[in-house]
């Protein structure tokens, strides 16, 4: 026969198991803050040094000469930001999982990534198609829109707050698609400022 405190431990165990097996809670606020800083730096470099600020859909590209040097730089810059942000997220998630005594690579993580991959791959392919047609103006707004969809979609497998962040990203993406000339600004707001604020919020709410 169990003691009363054993049953209390049972309850803790049930709660923890339900949480661990359904939600990915190793996401760290620091990942958001740093990803946001990378994005702000990237947007600044793209605007100031690479002169990237498409004012309309077609961005005055000569057909057949779409992949010019500047575009290459933009794509490389975007990839560097992406790799830095993902690398940072993996590093801090690993630290946090370790602190919680969990393994980072489990069924919950796999489910989260699988669900996130679908909208991101669809969006990524659409953006590549648009680049190949020279429609560069929609690049930045569409990354926001599909990223927002992915976040909204996976929020049930992690912190609920990702749903709000997803909606914010989608709104900024749509705004950027309408006001193409401010596309990069909306991108900086979405990937930069929103990530920083969200990271601070998560950090203060769950990590202290």
């Amino acid at each position: 026969m169990k003691e009363e405190q054993d049953y209390l431990r049972d309850i803790t165990e049930i709660r923890s198991m339900m949480e661990r097996s359904s939600k990915f809670l190793s996401l760290s606020g620091w990942s958001g803050i740093l990803a946001g800083i990378y994005a702000l730096a990237g947007a600044y470099i793209a605007y100031s040094f690479l002169g990237f600020n498409p004012a309309d859909l077609e961005y005055r590209q000569v057909p057949g000469e779409i992949l010019n040097f500047d575009l290459w730089k933009i794509v490389v810059l975007a990839l560097i930001i992406l790799i830095l942000a993902v690398g940072t997220a993996i590093y801090f998630s690993q630290q946090k999982a370790h602190k919680r005594g969990e393994r980072i690579w489990n069924a919950t993580t796999r489910r989260l990534l699988a669900h996130m991959a679908v909208p991101l791959i669809a969006g990524g392919l659409l953006i590549l198609i648009l680049i190949s047609k020279g429609w560069l103006g929609l690049m930045a707004p569409l990354t926001l829109l599909f990223y927002g969809l992915a976040l909204y979609h996976i929020s049930r497998f992690t912190y609920d707050e990702l749903k709000t962040l997803g909606l914010i990203e989608m709104v900024l993406g749509l705004a950027g698609a309408y006001f193409i000339e401010y596309g990069l600004l909306f991108w900086a707001l979405g990937f930069g400022l929103a990530h920083v604020l969200y990271g601070i919020f998560i950090h203060y709410r769950y990590e202290r």
Partner: peptide, 11 residues
């Protein structure tokens, strides 16, 4: 067993 049931209750 409690852990198994908890995981299956929510997934």
């Amino acid at each position: 067993r409690l852990g198994i049931m908890s995981a299956l209750a929510i997934n």
